[in-house]
Design a protein around this nucleic acid. Structure first.
Length: 456
RNA sequence: GUGAUUGUAGCUCAGUUGGUUAGAGCGCUGGUUUGUGGUGCCGGAAGUCGCGGGUUCGAGUCCCGUCCUUCACCCCA
């Protein structure tokens, strides 16, 4: 017995049913992307390392899969470096390429590279795999699929509004009701840090604040203290910890807190505009909620940020996220192009739909008719009709071997094929086909044309 | 990267205080009037008990290491 084969940690195989269900989700997302005017592009699975590195924060860079150079990659390395064991420097010498970590940064690279051929504002969608060298966990893989829609070249907040509506449209169509679209604004977070006098600790402060609903007020305060934020500053935060009420009420409280911060008030103004616009055309099934604690780790966001939480009772991380990045293309040399986008986490949406049993039965669409194989002569008679059936749009297959009837019928049964056709000597003589309904066991002796019209 | 957890047939798992040839169910395969499946009956194949070391007369069972699984943290879809 050979050793059991296996696949790398955090990767998965997909069975026929799983692939069909994934296509079901992707088709719905794709349809709405296109309804909102987004165009598809694709980019390579791997990029030059310097395209990716430095955009995701320190943690993010650590999770990028690096690709080892080909050939004698060690020859070019400074021997001293090997001995000192400085991994960061060593990595850059033996690896020049890396698997993409998300779709947004490669997209920014694409925009810069193709700027002369692009008419702005440019709206694109992209549904491809990304890779993260994370430790796998529930709903967390090292290879997974993101479905992104981004707009670059427009500062208009109407884009943010449309993206919220797009989220709502997709989740409504998936019958996934009561998702919460959490929204916040980096400017508000910057404003809070300003008011606290902790501008230099912005990242530490937001990372700690982000954990509020998970570990509670006290632990968040402890973490901030340990990061060197003054107790006095943390006290100013108090209204944020106890923020409650409707979207509009939270806006009002935050206005008061941020009254001395220009940037903070700008963020609040944006959030207010989005809410007002959304209220004019109410969302169909999702809930838009202002969550001041929402931070998101990706470095490049500068304005509104989004995160989608699955309906209550489903314990899984966020199923989507996004936000505005004012200068992502700047790092590749194209200034003053603002972008905003959202992402759907296909794999997590799958897990949620599975847990809530929201996949329609019709998703499983296999063969409709199986021709039983009685032997060469009979099979040749059947093959005349096979192509006719297929031309009529009926998914048809002929059992390849003249195996025992029991085996062939078991095959049909296992594959949930609803009809089989028995065409042996008798039927050939009469020029007919015997159509058997697998569920009811009824059989009908019909002409091929009658069978086609019955099944199509 | 930190901390826990798991590993026995293709799958889900039993396996008693360490004691001869390691079990069950499902699945697979063959047969049960060779033109009739889903439930019956009879038979069969399949495991160097994750891997490496150690303790012992003897290890699936105890000890150490390692890898893998799963979970939490970090971070994130």
């Amino acid at each position: 017995m050979a050793q059991q084969p296996s696949i790398p940690k955090g990767t998965r195989d997909f069975s026929p049913l799983e692939v069909q269900r994934r296509h079901y989700i992707m088709n719905i997302i794709q349809r709405h992307f296109e309804l909102y005017g987004f165009m598809p592009i694709e980019t390579p699975s791997f990029e030059n390392s310097d395209t990716l590195m430095g955009n995701y924060g320190e943690e993010g860079d650590r999770l990028i899969f690096k690709i080892l150079n080909s050939g004698e990659y060690l020859e070019k390395v400074d021997p001293k470096l090997l001995q000192t064991g400085k991994e960061n420097q060593l990595t850059s010498q033996i690896s020049e390429k890396a698997l993409r970590y998300d779709l947004t940064v490669p997209f920014a690279r694409y925009v810069v590279q193709n700027q002369n051929d692009i008419t702005f504002p440019f709206k694109r969608y992209q549904m491809q795999n990304v890779w993260r060298a994370d430790r796998p966990q529930k709903g967390r893989f090292r290879e997974f699929t993101q479905c992104d829609a981004d707009v670059v070249g427009s500062n208009s907040l109407l884009q943010e509004v449309e993206l919220v509506q797009l989220y709502d449209a997709v989740f409504t169509d998936l019958k996934l009701h009561s998702c919460t679209i959490k929204i916040n604004n980096r400017k508000v977070l910057a404003g809070i840090a300003q008011v606290m006098g902790a501008e230099d600790k912005l990242i530490d402060f937001t990372v700690a604040l982000d954990k509020l609903d998970k570990i509670g007020k006290k632990k968040v305060q402890e973490e901030m203290l340990s990061k060197g934020i003054e107790q006095q500053a943390i006290d100013i935060l108090d209204p944020v910890f106890s923020l409650s009420g409707s979207y509009a009420e939270k806006i009002a409280s935050m206005k008061e807190l941020l009254k001395n911060s220009e940037i903070g008030l700008k963020g609040i103004e944006e959030l207010e505009f989005i809410n007002t616009s959304i209220l004019q055309v109410p969302l169909k099934s999702a809930i838009l909620d202002l969550d001041i604690t929402l931070a998101r780790g990706l470095n490049y966001y500068t304005g509104c940020i989004f995160e989608v939480a699955a309906p209550e009772g489903v314990s899984i991380g966020s199923i989507g996220g996004g936000g505005r990045y004012d200068d992502l293309t700047g790092i590749f040399g194209l200034k003053d192009v603002s972008g905003v986008g959202i992402s759907f986490g296909l794999d997590r949406i799958y897990l949620v739909l599975e847990q809530l049993e929201l996949f329609p039965n019709s998703v499983r669409a296999g063969v409709e008719v199986l021709f039983i194989n009685f032997g060469i002569k009979e099979a040749q008679y059947c093959s005349l009709w096979l192509s006719r059936f297929r031309e009529s749009g009926i998914k048809t297959e002929l059992y390849p071997d003249a195996a025992k009837m029991k085996k062939q019928l078991t095959y049909a049964d296992r594959n949930a094929i609803p009809y089989v056709i028995l065409a042996g000597e008798d039927e050939i003589t009469k020029g007919k086909l015997n159509l058997k309904n697998m569920a009811s066991s009824e059989q009908f002796l019909l002409t091929p044309e009658e069978v086609i019209s019955k099944l199509s």
